[in-house]
Amino acid sequence: MTAFSYRTALIVGAGPGISASLARKLSASGVQVALAARHVEKLAPLAVETGASIFSVDASEQDGVARLFDEVEARLGEPDIVIYNASMAVRGPLAELDPATVAQSLSVNAFGAFLVVQQAARRMLPRERGAILLTGATAGIKGFARSAPFAMGKFALRGLAQSAARELGPKGIHVAHFVIDGGVRSAKRPDASDNTLDPDAIAQSYLDVLRQPRNAWTMEVDLRPWAETF
């Protein structure tokens, strides 16, 4: 592993789970952290704990994402780590799904990721360095019954990650996709057994990837509890 050389991280779709663990570990590694979400009031305690800055954004809105990057750059400098954690799960029988809700889910899970990756790439390409990490799910590998919208969005996210990695990797930008294959512990899901993923352990895997030397980069990481079937 190489030394940790990044200075500023932007986490889009920040919340109390994986994002919070990432903010803590990145901050402890000396990284300035920007937390961005649609509802920012939930981020105040985490910002106090980690010294992070808070930004409001609708990740599926083009002008809003561009403005977010401008605001982060003005306050903290250009982010050299960009993490997309925004997600929207819509489930139900195909014949009964509301098309407008499905479109919204696709906007958050896939189109928003494209907007964020595009803005990150525009800023990282001139410097020929940076990292873009995308948080996926089991649904990006296999589509489950009654979960078509989520599978559609996460499959698209994985395709974006693969394409971006092949395009941007040779230009010095590390793109990696993380398949979170299992339930993640949270206040609503406090199960501390090996049947759930520990968000702190997930965040550690992100940092391990960020420390990889460029001659041995990972494009995809598949994380699951050892007890999870796959």
Rank of each mutant, 00 (worst) to 15 (best):
G182E: 02
R127D: 06
G143V: 06
A3S: 12
V116N: 03
S56Y: 05
S205R: 12
K142E: 15
A113Q: 02
A176Q: 06
T2H: 09
P126E: 07
H174A: 06
D58F: 05
D194P: 02
V65Q: 06
P190N: 14
A151Q: 09
W217M: 11
Q212H: 06
I54D: 07
I132F: 15
D80H: 13
L207Q: 12
A131F: 14
F155K: 04
F114R: 08
L157S: 00
D191H: 11
A9V: 11
G153T: 03
K171Q: 12
R211T: 13
L157F: 00
A103I: 08
Q118P: 02
G169S: 05
R75K: 15
Q212S: 11
S29M: 06
G136R: 09
F178W: 07
D198Q: 10
M152C: 06
A89D: 12
F155R: 03
A165D: 08
A203E: 08
V90K: 15
Q119N: 03
P199D: 07
T8V: 15
P93K: 13
Q62C: 02
T229G: 02
A36S: 09
M88D: 15
A161C: 07
A164Q: 06
A59W: 00
Y6G: 02
G159Q: 04
A161M: 06
G136C: 13
G182N: 03
L10E: 09
D208S: 13
A59Y: 01
A28I: 10
G169A: 05
A100R: 14
D181M: 02
I11Q: 08
F178L: 08
L43Y: 14
G64Q: 15
R38M: 08
D198N: 15
R122T: 05
D98W: 12
M124R: 05
L133P: 00
R38H: 13
R146P: 01
G143F: 04
E71A: 11
V108P: 00
R158P: 03
A192H: 13
Q62H: 12
F155H: 11
T2A: 11
T135V: 14
G153M: 03
L168E: 00
G183K: 03
V221P: 04
S193I: 11
F178K: 00
A148Y: 13
P93L: 11
P45A: 03
E41H: 11
D58M: 10
A164W: 08
D181H: 04
A95I: 12
